[in-house]
């Protein structure tokens, strides 16, 4: 199954989406990420029982914070799929990529680029 998904999606592997904390999502934006999405197991199928539910709550919290600081809550999203759904993984990557393309770059990254003289 040679599936394609956008090359600019950087995959960070974690043992469970429950490992991802709010600070990880915020730091990603501080470091210039244009969007962050978590892909967890199907709800009810978490090996650790609550991991993906916790991740969803953290994503929702991140959305509220990012909305408040002007980055935009739409740049963070939670997805769920099973390990046998590779086409869905690729679809989510394209979906998120298209959303971020429409939103444009992370405004904080643009500000950092201006500060460092990298702005186009």
């Amino acid at each position: 199954m040679r599936l394609n998904y956008p090359a600019h999606v950087r995959v960070v592997r974690v043992p469970c989406t429950g490992k991802v904390d709010l600070i990880h999502i915020l730091r990603a934006f501080e470091k210039g990420a244009d969007g962050v999405y978590l892909v967890g197991c199907m709800e009810g199928s978490c090996f650790y029982e609550q991991g993906n539910f916790r991740a969803r709550k953290r994503v929702e919290h991140a959305q509220r914070l990012l909305e408040a600081v002007g980055t935009g809550g739409q740049r963070v999203q939670m997805y769920n799929l099973s390990s046998g759904e590779a086409p869905l993984f690729a679809q989510y990557a394209r979906e998120m990529s298209e959303r971020i393309m429409a939103l444009g770059p992370n405004p904080a990254k643009l500000a950092m680029d201006v500060r460092q003289g990298k702005a186009a």
Partner: peptide
């Protein structure tokens, strides 16, 4: 850490 990170993002977004 969370509040400081959110504030840094806010100030960056405000230029």
């Amino acid at each position: 850490g969370i509040l400081a990170s959110a504030l840094r993002l806010y100030f960056l977004n405000q230029g």
